[in-house]
Design a protein around this nucleic acid. Structure first.
Lengths: 329, 329
DNA sequence: TTGAAAGCGCTAACAA
DNA sequence: TTGTTAGCGCTTTCAA
């Protein structure tokens, strides 16, 4: 593999000229340009990022931390991030933490060793303390899920208001006994969505029933199934259920149907996220739509600004209730 | 950010000693070790990969090319790849090509510029010629989907035999009118699965009916729905359908039910891949299980060997038919 | 418009 | 066991 020296020798110019030809061709005389161009072609030369990165003290790579690669919630966000990154000649490393501190540490290390220029974190549940420490020295942005115990900038939606709206919709179509399938309360969004749920109940003078609230330990379909089974074990079953994610809602849907009950006639269901599969279930799922693509783009822009050394501010984006068959009256 | 020079000065030793302390601590005298250790702690030193990478002419990073990040088929494969990579202190860059040559070119460029040490390609449909050229100079392995027009090593399953087995199962439970939802024939697996389908029909003297074969242009749920609608438009409807992927099969399932038909009573359905969704549908989906995790691990091992300069050989792994509700008699 | 030369941070061959 | 030094491939300043 040819290097810049060989190209320079072949073209009969200095390495500086070759470098200029690659980075600022305008500053090279036309005749010289031709010579260099020919030498590059002849030797099949490709400049090495290794040398350039060292010289410029940057890697033009940043890390996107997600808890789980198989959670469809992240797909559009990632696309948004990628679009913005590629536009600025950056590449991203998609890293699954599996909410495991050791895995996360591997990726933090990539930033500390300058292998990556920054981090977009979608999983601050893991090791907030280290994240905060890192953010003092490196570029970090939180996306979607965030921790308020840090001063790290984030982009997200107003989960309280979104959950409030979802539950209010269930009440408006005639439900009073409304279950909540929540994830672990260590997640900020879980606490916020419960707050919205309670706020709606309160507003309509519906007493909270603890038997109708279930906290899952996992975030997959099976967790939704288990949650719904537990809720259906109550003597008096609810007439509606709000799940804090579509994946959980789809698991719940399956269990409801396994019990021989109809959705929405016996039990109405609302999810959260509007993942693509939520339109494939039978009935299709009413859900909260987050502007995921926009969220990803915004996070990437913020990180890139931060890497450049600029000050950045947190952002809250809009959400929307999408009414489909699972709450059709 | 401190560099190795500053640490050496602080510890009163040479940079070589600091480097040795980091890479081969045993070769440093205990007393010196203490001095260096203290200096590193005091200065909060982290060695830069940028310098090391240039020096060693490696990035310890490789690229995993997938057509679509949202296709659940890849999840387990990626986990397998990641496990093996991390074990060898390698990191992976997950790159979505969207089957777009331009996107792919960006990632190829990362290898040419030494930003990445190799490629695991799961999408050779794009620009086979370039892939072949690249493989002459760089480490490349094909995983799952591969092109036989190249001499690039691959790991995959025997798609002909798997499809044959799936269709034979449909015949054995009493079906003669069996539709095929295939993807574009430019994919090798599509051609192979059709071959297996035809082989089974032939063996049981069932005449092929072209109206029962549909080629999708996309690979998502909606494509499966469209395919099934087209197939159900035939005067005589089939009693079974084999889809070359679970995602397509799930779309088909939805359409069949939308037409008021029962699965498996009216139409039996078999998918391919055993993605996690396939157990969430109602009825659950009969499918072919591929050893995805193992496939990923094998691909990573092969690539790492190739990067080391060793010769590698293609591998075919075993598959399995998983019978579930959608073909229950 | 071009070239010489320094230097980004590290590793490793060689010498002491 | 440690230090000196060359050099990985590139960009950029300065001088010509």
């Amino acid at each position: 593999m040819a290097n810049i020296q060989q190209v320079a020798a072949e073209a009969g110019v200095s390495v500086a000229t070759v470098s200029r030809y690659i980075n600022k061709p305008d500053t090279v005389a036309p005749k010289t340009r031709v010579k260099v161009k020919e030498a590059i072609q002849k030797l099949n030369y490709e400049p090495s990022s290794l040398g350039r990165n060292l010289r410029k003290s940057e890697s033009r790579l940043f890390i996107v931390l997600i808890p789980s690669i198989s959670n469809p919630f992240y797909f559009e966000i990632i696309k948004g991030i990628e679009t913005e990154a590629l536009k600025k000649q950056y590449n991203i490393m998609l890293c699954e933490t599996a909410s495991d501190p050791e895995r996360e540490e591997i990726y933090f290390e990539l930033v500390r060793t300058r292998m990556a220029d920054g981090i977009i974190s979608m999983d601050p549940a893991v090791n907030i303390k280290t994240l905060q420490e890192m953010s003092d020295r490196y570029a970090i942005v939180q996306c979607s899920e965030y921790s308020i115990d840090t001063d790290i900038a984030y982009v997200s939606i107003d989960s309280v208001s979104a959950a409030y709206q979802a539950v209010k919709h269930l009440i408006n179509i005639g439900n009073k006994k409304i279950a909540l399938i929540n994830s672990d309360k260590s997640f900020l969004y879980a606490r916020q969505r419960e707050e919205g749920y309670l706020k709606a109940l309160e507003e309509y003078n519906i007493t909270k029933n603890d038997d109708y609230i279930y906290y899952t330990d996992e975030l997959d379909f099976q967790a939704g199934e288990r949650a719904m089974r537990a809720i259906l074990n109550n003597e008096e079953r609810p007439t509606a259920v709000f799940a804090v994610s579509d994946v959980l809602a789809i698991g719940a849907l399956k269990t409801i149907q396994a019990y021989g009950l109809k959705v929405p006639d016996d039990i109405a269901v609302v999810g959260f996220d509007k993942i693509s599969f939520s339109n494939m279930t039978n009935p299709t799922l009413t859900t909260i739509s987050q502007p995921m693509y926009e969220m990803g783009r915004t996070a990437a822009k913020m990180l890139l600004d931060k890497i450049k050394g600029e000050e950045i501010e947190s952002v809250i984006l809009d959400h929307e209730l999408v009414i489909r068959e699972s709450t059709l009256v």
